[in-house]
Design a protein around this nucleic acid. Structure first.
Length: 368
DNA sequence: AAGTCGGGGAC
DNA sequence: GTCCCAGACTT
């Protein structure tokens, strides 16, 4: 379907749109900026003068750089990704460098960023691209989605930004922008989810500069159309925004219902022999798979040894209090397959979990 | 449709 | 403390 045809289907003032069937409020006004092509023009103009200066935009549209950045940005704020991206690209400048690397090395460069499955899938996908696609990225949305770690959003992002495919994206920013723009008040985590938002996004993305348009949606959401206290007075789409025009910006999108936090108490044991400590790598099915940590348990672990401190941290609906104890060994126990005795000064070389890294600092300090 | 995966910064 | 974040994947 051509762009103009699709435009017609999605005209906001049309009586027979899929938007109505999807339960989306229809804009009654016929203001000039309410038409999708006008939205695109206004947004692209705003983007040209207001876009954020981000390291992965310097080399774009290098598909590899776009891909790495998009994986890092999944559920992770832009400002945190910046330095990780720069370091990662210095170490793995091309998909061939990444494919040739060992997984522990890749995880080390991901340490602290979270969601480590992303790093393992990125590495696996790099090998696929090199060994099954001749080092070339798939240039279709379907091809991109077949790679591990690339879902609906990321395929749309890479496709539009790197390959100029007129395909939509919906993530935290554009979801909020579009919901407010059309006055979509239904909760986006309820029945139907954000499928209506995807349909609207598909009707908005222009045939020319789709990547810039999608990035403009995200920048607008991050800089102007923020979750709290949005800067509507500076928004280029304010005149077309249903939420703004009806004074419902604060209520849209509806808040997702949050789940209760589970309290957990556990004990970490630092077995020490001379300058070495015992660490173990998290295995399949465990949190932080592939990363190193100290032996820990939530059961009634041995409470022997000197207390080094208390490490508290939160992960996904859990709040954990971890008591850290040190036991001086007269000899090294035989490590299991997932364990290693490591010099305290060599812990830096391992990819460790964030709590494990904090425990490591406790250990290093206790030796002073 | 719901649960799971991390971490840090803003407030 | 709570909320938020350029989602993907499994069950």
């Amino acid at each position: 379907m051509g762009f103009s045809k699709r435009l017609h289907c999605l005209r906001w003032n049309s009586r027979k749109t899929g938007l109505q069937e999807a339960g989306v409020a229809v804009v009654k006004r016929k203001g000039a900026t309410t038409r999708p092509e006008s939205i695109g023009r206004v947004l692209l103009a705003w983007y040209a003068r207001s876009k954020r200066d981000l390291p992965w935009r310097a080399s774009s549209p290098d598909p590899y750089a776009v891909w790495v950045s998009e994986i890092m940005l999944q559920q992770t704020q832009v400002e945190r990704v910046r330095e990780f991206f720069v370091r990662f690209m210095e170490r793995f400048p091309t998909v061939h460098d990444l494919a040739a690397a060992r997984e522990p090395t890749v995880l080390k460069y991901w340490e602290g960023l979270g969601y480590y499955r992303r790093a393992r899938q990125l590495h696996a996908a790099a090998k696929q691209i090199v060994h099954e696609h001749g080092g070339e990225f798939p240039r279709t949305v379907e091809g991109l989605r077949s790679l591990p770690g690339i879902g609906r959003y990321t395929a749309g992002a890479i496709g539009s930004i790197a390959f100029d495919l007129a395909t939509p994206i919906v993530e935290a920013n554009s979801r909020r922008v579009i919901a407010r723009l059309v006055g979509h008040a239904a909760p986006l985590d309820g029945p139907g989810g954000d499928e209506p938002i995807w349909e609207i996004a598909a009707g908005l993305v222009p045939p020319r500069h789709p990547g810039r348009f999608n990035q403009a949606l995200m920048d607008l959401g991050a800089m102007i159309c923020t979750p709290k206290l949005p800067l509507c007075s500076r928004c280029p789409l304010a005149s077309a925004c249903v939420a703004h025009q009806t004074n419902r910006v604060a209520a849209i999108p509806a808040q997702a219902k949050r789940r209760p936090v589970k309290q957990v108490q556990e004990t970490a044991v630092v077995l020490r022999h001379g300058e070495s400590v015992l660490v173990e790598r998290r295995g399949p099915g465990e949190w932080w798979e592939g990363l190193w940590d100290f032996p820990r348990g939530s059961g009634t672990a041995a409470k022997r040894g000197r207390r080094l401190g208390l490490v508290t941290y939160s992960v996904t609906h859990h709040r954990i209090e971890c008591a850290v104890r040190e036991q001086i060994m007269t000899r090294r126990t035989t490590p299991t397959k997932a364990q290693r005795w490591v010099k305290v000064t060599s812990l830096d070389a391992l990819a460790m979990t964030a709590p494990g890294r904090r425990i490591a600092r406790l250990v290093a300090r206790s030796g002073d």
